[in-house]
Computed example of a mutant assay.
Amino acid sequence: MPQKIKIGIIGGSGLDNPDILKNASTKSVDTPYGKPSDVITLGQIEGVDCVLLARHGRNHGIMPGNVNYRANIWALKNEGCTHVIAATATGSLQEHIKPGDLVILNNFIDRTQGRKQTFYDGEKNHPLGICHLPMEPAFCERTRQLIIQTAEQLNFSVHKTGTVVTIEGPRFSSKAESKMFRQWGGDIINMTSVPEIVLAKEAGLCYALVALVTDYDCWKDNKDEHVTVVDVLATFKKNVTKVTKVIMGVVPAIAKEDWSKTIDELQELVQNSIMK
């Protein structure tokens, strides 16, 4: 019998509108890792069960380094989610990736500092063992491809691959850092994808991320194109409906497929990565 699908949706800055869900209701939850960023919102998109969570809280009061990523992912897993579609606002590190474009990520470079990246930390009431989890591929390829197809059907400018550099924040990069990240092969930059992606995979969830490009960071020599909060928010507001439409479109597409083999293989990978 096919695996019952339930899709977690993690919204970043402004990408957490509960109006996308029908029959919505909120629920306060707790986890062995503390409370998630906010209540979770339960509902449906075209009859598919979904769980929405605001990464920074509904009032955007949690800075990137203080997000309880472990509690967020655990809450979605505990609620029965099989997939997570996450959204993030990002800066571009490449000329051809323009503000307003969508990037469906397939890799990452971690520049965060001290964030907890595993559920298997040896603490009381946490899972036993040490998880040496392979991170290639980092994202669920099947889910990525469905998102790409959905974005193309909507005629959005979409980049089918991309490497995100995740920095600690909350400050933006210096120009020297921004240029260095370009040399490393980074395509876009944000502050939240790690450890979210790592924890989602460790939890056995099919995770993919839709990145909305809002700016060119600060690597360009043109002084008028240095990233600012004002410019980011302006571009974001003009383009955020693209992300919403992609999510609304891909959820029923995911639910139409049989994911039993994909989920079983992912969970087997996690179990085989644990040393006890």
Rank of each mutant, 00 (worst) to 15 (best):
residue 152 E to G: 07
residue 265 E to V: 01
residue 70 R to Y: 11
residue 21 L to N: 07
residue 40 I to T: 06
residue 234 A to Q: 13
residue 174 S to P: 00
residue 97 I to R: 00
residue 186 G to I: 02
residue 52 L to G: 03
residue 1 M to E: 12
residue 192 T to M: 01
residue 27 K to N: 13
residue 75 A to W: 03
residue 67 V to P: 13
residue 189 I to G: 01
residue 56 H to L: 09
residue 18 P to F: 11
residue 262 T to R: 12
residue 225 E to I: 05
residue 71 A to F: 03
residue 98 K to H: 10
residue 134 P to Q: 11
residue 156 F to C: 05
residue 115 R to D: 10
residue 146 L to D: 02
residue 55 R to E: 08
residue 23 N to D: 15
residue 257 E to F: 05
residue 213 V to G: 04
residue 200 A to D: 04
residue 71 A to K: 01
residue 67 V to E: 05
residue 55 R to I: 05
residue 9 I to A: 10
residue 271 Q to F: 08
residue 1 M to V: 14
residue 164 V to K: 00
residue 204 G to T: 07
residue 118 T to W: 00
residue 220 K to G: 06
residue 275 M to V: 13
residue 191 M to K: 07
residue 75 A to I: 01
residue 270 V to N: 02
residue 43 G to W: 01
residue 183 Q to D: 10
residue 60 H to W: 08
residue 244 T to H: 12
residue 215 D to I: 00
residue 59 N to E: 15
residue 254 I to C: 04
residue 23 N to Q: 14
residue 44 Q to I: 00
residue 142 R to K: 13
residue 4 K to R: 14
residue 111 R to G: 02
residue 249 G to F: 05
residue 154 L to P: 12
residue 268 E to N: 14
residue 148 I to T: 06
residue 124 K to V: 15
residue 84 V to L: 11
residue 208 A to K: 01
residue 113 Q to K: 15
residue 205 L to Q: 08
residue 92 S to M: 09
residue 27 K to Y: 02
residue 58 R to L: 06
residue 51 V to A: 05
residue 53 L to I: 13
residue 229 V to F: 08
residue 261 K to D: 15
residue 89 A to Q: 06
residue 109 I to K: 03
residue 154 L to N: 07
residue 144 R to N: 12
residue 222 N to H: 09
residue 15 L to H: 08
residue 61 G to D: 15
residue 148 I to G: 03
residue 270 V to C: 04
residue 92 S to W: 00
residue 192 T to W: 09
residue 159 H to G: 09
residue 178 S to L: 04
residue 215 D to R: 00
residue 241 T to Q: 12
residue 233 L to S: 07
residue 148 I to K: 05
residue 22 K to F: 11
residue 182 R to E: 06
residue 73 I to Q: 02
residue 203 A to G: 08
residue 223 K to W: 15
residue 59 N to Y: 03
residue 206 C to P: 05
residue 148 I to Y: 01
residue 138 A to S: 13
residue 102 L to W: 02
residue 138 A to L: 14
residue 57 G to P: 11
residue 251 V to C: 08
residue 93 L to I: 09
residue 178 S to T: 03
residue 195 P to I: 04
residue 251 V to P: 02
